[in-house]
């Protein structure tokens, strides 16, 4: 039905326009390919410029000012906000925690995801329904996942400690303060994130595994290579591009984590789970210091870009994959 129907109501004017364009283009080929491509990209580019570019410019401009939103004052502060951010233990701590959180999430997801993908691959078609089941956490809102895990881990009535106690793994329901012990809380708040997206890792890696030609693995086996050796020397190098994409994508997402943590601990206890997103949000909207928050946001963005580019350059290595 989607095919052009010139008799569509309201279509007449446009139809005329169509003819006009044909006439204009046919003789001299009209737009060059370059221009045509540009015209196709233009709407999306304009959209992103307005709704992402402009706010980013605003962010960077604001980062150079001392702003008191309620008093309505705005004074140029040069790089003062950057100085303040870079010398504040809160910002540096949050930056460290963001890095740690990202590492934690990505490492665990990758390890678990790879294990599951290898399992799927070993079991073949019969594991299909399980692959379907694995999909479901991906669809759940991070807010819901955060609440759910908070509910599972919460002190006094969390089911996880209760079950661990009954299984005899821990001494009592109060043995682990998942969300109240500052030493482990960063790990605990990462659990929903890991739970939500390990499936993503698993499915992407599984697809990558399926694309590895069987004869390559067979050759390795015939060469007398053990399973571990095959995995580290043959399979993983072949998966490199897939792994790179998956790690970069997940790393970016994990570094921006906001709602899962907000809903679980709101950054506590003792700020032990306060990541940069939370700190910036707080500084911006709760403490009313948009200038400082913008400087933090800008630094955060620069760091993300830097790390992502390095990651892409070192592990992606586009082009021919080494055997």
């Amino acid at each position: 039905m989607g095919r052009a129907d010139p008799r569509l109501p309201g279509g007449d004017v446009r139809a005329g326009d169509d003819h006009l364009r044909h006439r204009r283009r046919r003789p001299g080929r009209g737009l060059t390919d370059d221009r045509f491509a540009l015209a196709l990209m233009a709407p999306a580019a304009v959209f992103l410029a307005v709704f992402v570019g402009w706010p980013l410019v605003k962010l960077i401009v604001d980062s150079l000012y001392d702003i008191a939103p309620l008093a309505g004052t705005r004074e140029f502060a040069g790089l003062g906000n950057y100085g303040e951010a870079l010398t504040s233990p809160g910002f540096l701590g949050a930056a460290g925690r963001t890095a740690l959180y990202t590492m934690l999430v990505v490492t665990l997801e990758f390890t678990l995801g790879l294990a599951v993908a290898l399992l799927f691959n070993a079991l073949g078609r019969r594991a299909r329904w399980i692959r379907t089941l694995f999909l479901y956490p991906l669809m759940i809102a991070p807010v819901v996942a955060g609440l759910l895990w908070r509910f599972l881990l919460i002190d006094n009535f969390g089911i996880v400690n209760e079950l661990l106690t009954r299984l005899g793994i821990i001494g009592g329901p109060d043995a682990i303060g998942w969300l109240s012990d500052p030493d482990i809380v960063l790990f605990s708040v990462a659990l929903p994130d890991i739970w939500l997206t390990t499936s993503f890792m698993a499915l992407v890696l599984f697809a990558g595994l399926q694309n590895i030609p069987g004869d390559v693995l067979e050759a390795a086996r015939l060469d007398g290579s053990g399973p571990w050796h095959t995995l580290t020397r043959v399979t993983l190098p072949l998966l490199r591009p897939v792994i790179a994409v998956a790690l970069v994508v997940r790393g970016i997402d994990a570094a921006r984590a906001f709602d899962v943590i907000l809903i679980q601990t709101n950054g506590g206890p003792q700020s032990a789970s306060e990541t940069l997103s939370l700190l910036i949000y707080r500084t911006m909207v709760r403490f009313g210091e948009p200038g400082l928050a913008s400087a933090m946001g800008t630094l955060y963005l620069i760091a993300m870009l830097g790390v992502a580019l390095i990651a892409v350059a070192t592990i992606w290595r586009p082009g021919k994959v080494v055997r």
Binding site: D155, N156, D174, G177, S180, G268, P269, Q270
Partner: peptide, 21 residues
């Protein structure tokens, strides 16, 4: 006091009391 004092907030305290703890 019950475990988890560090992250205990109003809702948590209220629940402990209402549950008879």
């Amino acid at each position: 006091s019950p475990p988890g004092a560090e992250q205990l907030d109003w809702a948590g305290a209220q629940n402990l009391f209402n549950q008879g703890k």
